[in-house]
Nucleic acid binder design. Structure first.
Lengths: 144, 144
DNA sequence: TTTGACCTGTGAGTTGCTCACAGGTTTTAG
DNA sequence: CTAAAACCTGTGAGCAACTCACAGGTCAAA
C-alpha cells in the first residue's frame, strides 16, 4: 500500500500518515525501484490503533511507547490501563472546569441583561468584562 | 511601571507582558534614557481586561479587536456580547463532547474488567483499544 | 507523449504562551 | 567604588498534533 491507500483505508489525511511515519509510529519499507513508502497490513493495524487511542485521549508519545512495547512482544495492556485511568481523571477535571466556566458565563450573560453598553471613558474598557468576577479556582491553569 | 511591575500587578509572567506588547495589546511608551518599556495605569487596565477575557475564552485577536474599538472610543460591548454568545455555545459543545468521551471511556473500562492482558501476536496490539467501539459522532473533528 | 495524479522530503503555520540567549542597565551589597 | 545580582532589551525556538505548501521525481491513462 502506498501513502494514499493506507490513509484511505484508515480514513485519515495522507499527511497524517507521513507525519506518523516521521514520528516513528509507522515503519513502512521502501520500494527500491522508486523510493516510495510501502505500508503493509501491520502498519494499517498500527495506524487504526493509533487513531483509536488518539480518540481516547492518548498522546503520540504514549502511543509510540505502547507500540514499542508491542514490538518487543510485551503486553502493552497494563500500560494502556494505567494511562487510560489517568486520562479519564483528566477528562473529568476538564469537564468540571468547563462546567464552571459555563456557569460563570451564564451568570455574566444574565447580569449583562441589565447593563448598558458604555462607551470607553478612559477608566473602563467594557464593564461587561471588567465587572465580571474572577473564577474561584486560582488563575494558575497548570496543575502545579 | 516596568515589565516586571505590571506583570506582578496583574499576576502574570513578565514574558506574557512582553508577548502581549509584541501582539499590540499593550502600548507602553519608552524611557529614552535606557530604552525600557514604560507601562501606565491604562496598560494595567488593558492587561487585566485581557486576562479576564482570556478566562472567558476570548482569543487574542478578539481581544485586540475589542481593545481597538475601545481605543477609537466606540463601545466594544456589542462585540463582546456577540463573541461571548458564540463562545458560550462552543463551551457547551465542548462539554457535551467531553461527556460523551467520558461515557465511552467508562464503558471501555468496565468492558476491560473481564478482558485478559493479551500479548501482541502479530494480529492484535492491545485488544483493550482495538475492540473498543468507535465514537458515535463521525470521526471528523472539523465542522466541515 | 503529455497530462494529471500521485509520490518524495522538508519547512512553515496554527495558539498562547514560556523559556533561552546574548548583551545592556540598574540596583544592591561589601 | 566596584562587582555581582537582578533587571531590562529583542529575537528565535519549543510545545501538540497535525495540515498545508513547495519543488521536484514517478507513474497511469488517454
Amino acid at each position: 500500500m502506498k501513502v494514499k491507500d493506507i490513509a484511505n483505508a484508515a480514513g485519515v489525511n495522507p499527511d497524517t500518515v507521513r507525519f506518523y511515519t516521521r514520528e516513528g509510529l509507522l515503519k513502512p519499507t521502501r520500494n527500491p525501484d522508486n523510493n516510495y513508502q510501502q505500508y503493509g497490513a501491520d502498519d494499517l493495524r498500527r495506524l487504526r490503533f493509533a487513531r483509536k487511542a488518539r480518540q481516547l485521549g492518548f498522546s503520540l508519545p504514549e502511543i509510540r511507547n505502547i507500540l514499542g512495547e508491542a514490538d518487543e512482544h510485551h503486553s502493552p495492556c497494563p500500560m494502556v490501563r494505567e494511562v487510560f485511568e489517568t486520562r479519564l481523571a483528566e477528562v473529568e477535571r476538564e469537564i468540571s472546569e468547563l462546567q464552571q466556566l459555563r456557569e460563570r458565563m451564564k451568570n455574566a450573560l444574565s447580569a449583562w441583561q441589565d447593563m448598558p453598553d458604555g462607551t470607553p471613558d478612559g477608566h473602563t474598557i467594557c464593564r461587561l468584562i471588567e465587572h465580571w468576577d474572577e473564577p474561584t479556582t486560582p488563575t494558575n491553569g497548570k496543575g502545579e
